[in-house]
Amino acid sequence: MPPIHDSQRVAVLADSQNLYHTAHSLYSRNIDYTALLDGATLDRELVRAIAYVIRADSPAEEDFFDALRDIGFETKIKEIKTFGDGTKKADWDVGIVLDAITLAEHVDAIVLASGDGDFSRLCSHVRHQGTRVEVMSFGESTADELIDAADSFVDMSEDREQFLL
């Protein structure tokens, strides 16, 4: 496992839907994205921070997107899809994977803010390529295989007052 040091270049990829739903279901609170970014970079050089968000035409979501940009996140926005049977779907899994693989060649560490176990194979791949992978999420809802596949795991539940508004 490559160690953390302050000269590392870091990319932060935040799966905003995963974080939002987890924070609300566990604590009925919102994520503090400033604290998330600070906790992810640990005084290392931030190369890129991307928040993957869904536009669902809910009140104040544009304000949220603007706030993310003000904090320092690039926002990638996907429209929610409604199918004929009324079900809705929107996720960024493929986009996050593609960005992580592309960015891994340009950074020393990737911080993935998500608890989604679907990303465990991504972590293994990126680590095999020589890039450190760190996961930040809430322990109660983070897949064990994701934790196992990362170089390190920050359980945001252990410091709720830092990471939640």
Rank of each mutant, 00 (worst) to 15 (best):
G86V: 11
C123P: 05
L19H: 04
A11N: 00
M1F: 07
F73D: 01
V94L: 07
A51F: 02
D6Q: 10
T34Q: 07
P59F: 14
V97E: 11
G84I: 08
Y27G: 02
L68F: 09
P59K: 04
S16G: 11
V126M: 13
K81E: 02
V47T: 07
L37N: 00
A90K: 01
I96P: 08
I147D: 04
I54L: 10
L26H: 13
S157Q: 11
H5N: 14
L98V: 06
E74K: 04
Y20G: 13
A143Q: 12
E74W: 08
F64W: 10
P2Q: 08
E158C: 14
R121Q: 11
D66E: 13
A149R: 11
L19I: 01
T34F: 04
G72N: 06
I80Q: 14
D15L: 09
L46E: 03
V10F: 00
T131I: 10
A109R: 15
M156D: 00
S114N: 03
V94S: 15
A113H: 08
C123W: 05
A100D: 13
D85I: 09
V126Y: 13
D43I: 07
K78C: 02
L68I: 04
L19W: 03
N30F: 15
D159G: 09
P2T: 13
L19F: 02
F73C: 15
R29F: 05
E74S: 13
I80C: 05
K88W: 04
H24A: 07
A23K: 06
A90C: 09
D151E: 05
P2M: 10
I71F: 06
H125W: 12
D148F: 09
E145N: 02
V133W: 10
Y33I: 01
T102S: 15
M136D: 14
